[in-house]
Nucleic acid binder design. Sequence first.
RNA 1: GGAGAGAUGGCCGAGUGGUCGAAGGCGCACGCCUGGAAAGUGUGUGUACCCCACAAGGGUACCGAGGGUUCGAAUCCCUCUCUCUCCGCCA
Length: 427
Amino acid sequence: MLELQVIRANPGLIKERLSVKNVAQLQLVDTILELDDRRKALQQQVDSLLNQINTLSKEVGDLFRSGKKEEAEAMRQQSSNIKEQVSALETEAKQTETLLQETLVQLPNLPNVLVPPGKTPDDNEVVATHGEFPDLPMHAKPHWELAVQYNLINFELGTKITGAGFPVYSGKGAKLQRALINFFLNEATAAGYTETMPPHVVNEASAYATGQLPDKEGQMYHVGIDNFYLIPTAEVPLTNLFRDEILKEEDLPVKICGYTPCFRREAGSYGKDVRGLNRLHQFDKVEIVQIQHPDASYSTLNDMVQHVAGLLQKLQLPYRIVRLCGGDMSFASALTYDFEVYSAAQKRWLEVSSVSNFETFQANRLKLRFRDSQTKKNRLLHTLNGSALALPRIVAALLENNQTVNGINIPAVLQPYTGFATIGREA
RNA sequence: GGAGAGAUGGCCGAGUGGUCGAAGGCGCACGCCUGGAAAGUGUGUGUACCCCACAAGGGUACCGAGGGUUCGAAUCCCUCUCUCUCCGCCA
């Protein structure tokens, strides 16, 4: 949620920046300002009337104690009358406030100046490319065929027990998952992130605070009986750990990481590009989160990008880094870098990570602040997060890129974690 | 799931209709004391919104959340949430 003070201070700039994200209803900004003015005016009236009541009440008390019954009675009546005015005004003030909030949450975050204009992924800007495309054997197979051939993943079994998009990993397929999770967690820990195991189910307030609600209601699995949501990413519980907190400046940055499964309904995405591991309803991911001083958050964003790049380099996967255009970035983000690995048999770039700076957008809803040592005032912090990494497409690329006619080679860094160097050759 | 108890400021803990934004203690900050420190001692110490110059000063709200009674509610009533204890069930 954008800060009201910021909108008030410079509505023109807000509109200009929002247009980079292709926000159609720029008049929402004006609506917000009008509602804010109305709210303020109403609140002032209410406050002034309440002040009168408070003053009268004290006098009534004094008069009763000193036995002046008639005067007290008169004042009591007067106070009663004022209260009737108050309740009407209060109702209106509350409605205005609600309306203001509802309008405010409809505005996405402002894009950073680096964000290229554009509407579709075609307008994204490739900022770096790394690694060589592998030479695959003749008749190279896509990962969904390799997964079946080597008994790594059973898509049909998953369909039986749950539905499409819930694969069952077994044998070396399952061990590879566990190896990747451990590898990613160890790397994150080595980089100073504190490992955290959060709940996989969150309440409405948490989903709201990180911006999944009301924007992406239909994308989350909802547990109706308890009004909980299955997490679409560890970002939700990990960031909400700090909801309503006021941190000390010397504790910054806060760095945490966590592995969780992620659940996404992916409503409306049936059809193409969803084969095999390309798009799932449940998948595993290690997430890194940082909470940082506003002055340092962009340098932190770069650190996080470098961390993710390092993982892909160690896994020896060809990748590119893409700066998302205004139309492709998420609602809450100010600047996002996507990582895409090249999956050689499919001949496609697959998104495996998204690293974003949300600036104060999430912190505002979270009420996540720090005490500024200069001004002695509480200020909103910046929140950042990134996938490091999401497993399925990494697995897809590993299987496809490292296939030989005899089997699949495991990258050297993973072998201590898997306990095997190849898939297929010996079994 | 059943029975009972409770939810107060960073923490502990008073407070059952008015003088309570809230005693007292701890913690913290600044000062005094000291060669330095401890002890002692003095002062201060929440959040949000609004007026105003984001100053001084002032107003309003907040004692788990939301409603209600009342001239006036931390205090009375209702609903909800959460925590604790005992029982039941259970990885």
